[in-house]
C-alpha cells in the first residue's frame, strides 16, 4: 500500500504540471480582459497603463513561468518565513490578484474558514441525512418511504440551488424572519448567543446545499445497498439465522459502504471548491464566491491559482479514495 501511494504521488507530479499548463492556457485564452470592469469613462491610454502595471501585457509563457516560480517557490518560502522568521522569499513578489492587488493566498486564507464551516457542514449534514434515507429506501424498496426518498432525491437533483436558495430565503428570512440573508463573516463565536447566531446564519446555506448533497449520496447509498441486498452472502447470513438488524447493518451496510465512502471522499474537494451559487446567494465569502468574482473580473492570477489548487485537491482525494477502497475492501490489494 505504501509503495502504491508513493508511486501514485510521483506520477501525480507530471500530471499536475500538465494540468497547470493547460489551466493557464485555458484561463488565458478565455475571452475577457481585466479591463472589462472598468467604466467606459476611463480613457484607453489609462487602460493600457493599468494593464502594463498588472503585467498582463507580458507574453503568456513568461507569465506562466513567473506564476510557476511564485506558486512553487515564493509562496512556500513566504509561508516558511512567516513561521520561522527567516527571509527565504527575499521580498520577491507573491501572486497578486489583479482585482484587489492583495496576495492571492492571503485572500484564500481569509476565505477557507467560511467555506469549510458552511460548505463542510452542509456536506456533513447531507451525508448524515443521505445514509439513513438510502439504507431504509433500499431495505424497503418500492415502499412509500422509498417513493418519498426518490421524490426527495429528484427534487435535490433537479432543483438548482439558486432556486431552492431563493425559496428558502423567502420562507425562512422574509416570511418567518428566522435567519439572516447575509452571512456575517466578522461574527466571532465566543459564547452561547454568538454560537447560536452562527448557527442561524449558517442554517439557510446549509439547508440549500445539504439538500443537493443528500440527494446525490442517498441515491448512491440506495443503489449500493440494493446491489448487495440480493447477494448470496446476505442470503447466507439470513440462513445462518442472524437477526435482520445484523443482516442489514453488518453484512449489507458494511459492504455497501465501500463505494459510498469512495464517492464521499471524492466529493470532498468540492467542499474546498466552495459552492459558487450558494455562497454568492447568501453572501458567504468563501472560495466559490471568490472564484466567480475573479472570473467576472478576469482576475487571471486568482482564477489560475484557485483552479490549480482544486486540481491538486482532486488528484489528492482520488488517491485517498483509492487508498480507502483498499483499506475497506480486503479483496483489493495494490502491491
Amino acid at each position: 500500500m505504501l509503495t502504491f501511494t508513493l508511486r501514485r504521488l510521483l506520477l501525480a507530479i507530471p500530471t499536475l504540471f500538465v494540468i497547470s499548463l493547460v489551466i493557464f492556457l485555458l484561463v488565458d485564452l478565455a475571452p475577457g480582459s481585466p479591463m472589462s470592469e472598468i467604466p467606459l469613462t476611463v480613457p484607453p491610454e489609462v487602460r493600457k497603463k493599468m494593464i502594463e502595471a498588472l503585467g498582463a501585457d507580458q507574453p503568456v509563457m513568461v507569465r506562466y513561468v513567473l506564476w510557476l516560480r511564485q506558486f512553487f517557490w515564493v509562496e512556500p518560502a513566504t509561508l516558511f518565513d512567516g513561521w520561522f522568521g527567516t527571509n527565504l522569499a527575499g521580498g520577491e513578489q507573491r501572486i497578486l490578484s489583479w482585482q484587489s492587488r492583495a496576495p492571492v493566498f492571503t485572500i484564500i486564507g481569509q476565505r477557507i474558514p467560511q467555506t469549510l464551516t458552511v460548505i463542510g457542514t452542509a456536506y456533513l449534514v447531507g451525508v448524515l441525512i443521505a445514509l439513513p434515507i438510502g439504507i431504509y429506501s433500499a431495505y424497503r424498496q418500492y415502499s412509500l418511504f422509498d417513493q418519498l426518498g426518490t421524490l426527495f432525491a429528484m427534487i435535490g437533483f433537479s432543483v438548482p440551488t439558486f432556486f431552492s436558495g431563493t425559496l428558502i430565503i423567502i420562507i425562512f428570512a422574509v416570511t418567518l424572519g428566522w435567519f439572516p440573508t447575509k452571512y456575517d463573516t466578522n461574527l466571532a463565536v465566543t459564547d452561547w448567543p454568538s454560537f447560536l447566531q452562527q448557527l442561524r446564519q449558517m442554517a439557510m446555506p446549509v439547508m440549500t446545499l445539504g439538500l443537493a448533497n443528500a440527494a446525490v449520496i442517498s441515491r448512491y447509498m440506495r443503489s449500493s445497498m440494493l446491489d448487495n441486498m440480493t447477494m448470496d452472502y446476505v442470503r447466507t447470513a439470513r440462513a445462518k439465522g442472524m437477526s435482520e438488524r445484523v443482516v442489514v447493518l453488518k453484512h449489507v451496510l458494511r459492504n455497501s459502504m465501500i463505494p459510498v465512502v469512495t464517492v464521499i471522499a471524492l466529493g470532498i474537494p468540492s467542499i474546498f471548491g466552495g459552492a459558487i451559487i450558494t455562497e454568492n446567494l447568501f453572501g458567504v465569502n468563501g472560495i466559490g464566491a471568490a472564484l466567480i468574482g475573479a472570473i467576472h473580473a478576469s482576475d487571471l492570477p486568482m482564477v489560475q491559482t484557485l483552479a490549480f489548487i482544486f486540481a491538486v485537491l482532486i488528484v489528492t482525494f482520488n488517491l485517498i479514495a483509492d487508498v480507502l477502497y483498499g483499506l475497506l475492501d480486503p479483496r483489493i490489494r495494490y502491491d
Binding site: G177, T181, K182, L281, G283
Partner: peptide
C-alpha cells in the same frame, strides 16, 4: 459602519426592503 458585499441586486434589495437587515 459595515459594508457587506456580494450576492446580487435582488438579494441586496431584499436585505434592506424586506428583511431589514441592512
Amino acid at each position: 459602519a459595515v459594508i457587506k458585499g456580494g450576492g446580487d441586486a435582488e438579494g441586496s434589495a431584499r436585505a434592506v426592503m424586506e428583511t431589514g437587515e441592512f
